[in-house]
Structure formats: structure tokens, C-alpha cells
């Protein structure tokens, strides 16, 4: 066999392999008809600020487990309006509530007995949702790392945070 015949055979073999490759089995791709989804944070639906009266009403109910009276609501609204910085005003109002013996807050023992249940219940109570895993872990770590933290600190933080002011 001369060199010319050998080149022709190699050429034919190459063509044959290419054809085989083209008609060989292919992996099946399954399409399940799933649309692209934008993943948003769990609280992204809350885009409207509460009115001061809505905020006070919900805050009061969360801390006393009963509705605020209309007269008391009117007075609280005026008191809040009389201070420009609403974060400061809400802090003072809630500090006043915290001095009321009728305020309903779990004990520290209850919190330490089952921290996860406490955090989940606090999220549901104030933010009307479950915590994400990241949030839950942060809160549980916070309880572990801060021996002096009490349910009151959590309730204060949740009661005066931005998410609690929106719906």
C-alpha cells in the first residue's frame, strides 16, 4: 500500500467517524414548563406605611392583647404627632407601655426553654411571617451570645422596626 492509498483510507475513516458521531445517541433534555421566577425577600410585599393610628392600634394590641380605646388612641396620636422624629416618639410610647404592669411579654425562662419557638412566635406576632433560616440563626445566636438579653429587648426591637411599620 502506497502512501496515497493510506491517506485516502484515513480520510474515509475520518468521514465515517464524523457521520457516526452525528447520528449517534443524544442525551434527552426534558422541559418541565417552569417559568423563570424572581426570588424576592419574604417581606417584600410590605410596601405601604401604616398610618400612625394603625401603627399605634397594632402596637397596643401586640403588647396588651386587647384593643386600645378610641379616646386613648386619639391622645396617643396627638402625642406622637407632637414630636417630629417618629422613631424617638415611638420609642417613648413603647417605653411607656413597657412600664405598664398589664403588658404581656413572655418570661426569660420561657424564652430560654425553647428559643426557636420564641423567635418564631415573635416573628409571627409582629411581622406576621415565619423567619428565614438566616434570620432564625441570627436571632438564636444573639440569644446565645447575649446572656443579658430578655424578651423585652426583642419585643422592643420588633415593635419599633421598619417592617412592623409597613404592611
Amino acid at each position: 500500500m502506497n502512501m496515497q492509498d493510506l491517506s485516502k483510507k484515513i480520510y474515509r475513516l475520518g468521514i465515517g467517524c464524523l457521520i457516526l458521531l452525528m447520528v449517534s445517541c443524544q442525551k434527552d433534555y426534558y422541559v418541565y414548563q417552569i417559568d423563570d421566577q424572581t426570588v424576592l425577600p419574604v417581606n417584600s410585599q410590605k410596601i405601604k406605611p401604616k398610618s400612625v393610628s394603625q401603627y399605634i392600634s397594632i402596637l397596643y394590641t401586640n403588647f396588651f392583647q386587647r384593643a386600645i380605646s378610641p379616646n386613648s388612641m386619639l391622645g396617643a396620636q396627638k402625642a406622637i404627632e407632637s414630636i417630629g422624629d417618629k422613631q424617638v416618639a415611638f420609642d417613648i410610647l413603647l417605653s411607656k407601655y413597657m412600664n405598664d404592669p398589664k403588658v404581656i411579654i413572655p418570661s426569660k425562662e420561657e424564652m430560654l426553654k425553647d428559643p426557636e419557638a420564641f423567635i418564631r412566635a415573635t416573628y409571627k406576632r409582629f411581622l406576621v411571617r415565619e423567619p428565614t433560616e438566616a434570620e432564625l440563626n441570627w436571632m438564636l445566636n444573639y440569644i446565645k451570645s447575649r446572656p443579658n438579653v430578655t424578651p423585652e429587648h426583642f419585643y422592643f426591637g420588633f415593635g419599633t422596626c421598619n417592617e412592623h411599620f409597613h404592611y
Partner: peptide, 26 residues
């Protein structure tokens, strides 16, 4: 300090930009 730490974490996770209690940047 603890109020602010807890509140700060919650606020940081409330990602809707500009939606905050109308404070005056004190």
C-alpha cells in the same frame, strides 16, 4: 444597644428601599 442591634438587623433585612419609620436622622 440591644434594641438597636435587634432593630438594626431587622431593618437591614427589610429590603424595600426608603420604607422606614419617618425619623429625622438624629
Amino acid at each position: 444597644e440591644m434594641f438597636r442591634e435587634i432593630r438594626g438587623f431587622l431593618n437591614q433585612n427589610f429590603t424595600n428601599e426608603g420604607l422606614e419609620i419617618p425619623h429625622l436622622y438624629n
